[in-house]
């Protein structure tokens, strides 16, 4: 099996004030990667107008684009409309489901969605007490279960999980520990470890660090734009040959 180059970025936070800037940085991406993954927080206020800017910046790229939404993209309660606008522009948007991207003889399976918080093993909320607390934790648990099923059903040569929230603490290093429960949940990592994946890509933690790993050994990469400081990063999944 040949190697596969995946470009990834998150937290691009586009709006009218930066229209056209990000697109310029994507020129020549087809020479570096075969697919672009975008890990949420595509907009700043989550309006349909901003969603249209995102669609314009990402449409008609020479490589397929797979995206998820982030918490900012939910802020104006227009998440469904934003998904529609992006899909109309040819962008695949995952919403707790999966897709298989055919790439010149290889099948890349991508599963995921926005994800959610709750914290990390031993220091997390549980479904106990007030209904508000239970609803918060249940939301993440249900998402994680949908991701596990999505991963299980994927038939592909390589599998990647695409999320906005983090599955591990490793990639949050640099953020205040007090806010970790709002930055991710170990339930997302557990779902990926249960079914296996080659890579877990997320954003959300602007002050975090790029590299981490799930307890099961899946490489985790925080690709939030302020973390990677590049238009995108490229990860080469190695097949039998040299990357």
């Amino acid at each position: 099996m040949r190697d596969l180059r995946i470009a990834a970025v998150a937290d691009i936070h586009l709006g009218e004030d930066v229209r056209g800037h990000y697109r310029k940085k994507l020129e020549g991406i087809e020479q570096r990667a075969e697919v672009l993954l975008v890990g949420g927080d595509l907009t700043r206020h989550g309006t349909v107008q901003e969603g249209r800017v995102v669609a314009e910046e990402l449409r008609d790229l020479p490589i397929p684009v797979v995206a998820v939404l982030g918490n900012h993209d939910y802020h104006s309660d227009a998440n469904k409309e934003i998904i529609e606008v992006l899909r109309d522009a040819g962008i695949t948007v995952l919403d707790d489901d999966s897709t298989v991207v055919p790439l010149d003889g290889l099948r890349l399976g991508v599963a995921g969605g926005k994800g959610f918080g709750g914290g990390f093993a031993g220091k997390c909320a549980s479904e106990f007490g007030e209904p508000e607390t239970k609803a918060f934790v249940r939301h993440t648990r249900e998402i994680a279960e949908r991701w596990r099923l999505a991963l299980k059903g994927l038939e592909a040569d390589h599998k990647v999980v695409l999320s906005h929230y983090s599955p591990v603490k490793d990639t949050l290093t640099g953020e205040p520990p007090e806010i970790y429960p709002f930055l991710g949940s170990y339930l997302l990592a557990e779902a990926a470890d249960a079914e296996g994946a080659d890579l877990f890509v997320h954003g959300h933690a602007h002050a975090g660090t790029e590299k981490g790993m799930t307890p099961g050994g899946i490489r985790v990469r925080n690709v939030a734009l302020p973390v990677i400081e590049h238009a995108y990063v490229v990860y080469c999944l190695n097949g039998d040959g040299d990357c």
Partner: peptide, 13 residues
Amino acid sequence: LVEVREPGEEEHL
């Protein structure tokens, strides 16, 4: 201001 540089070296996984 976030500096968005051109993509750098790829990482091999």
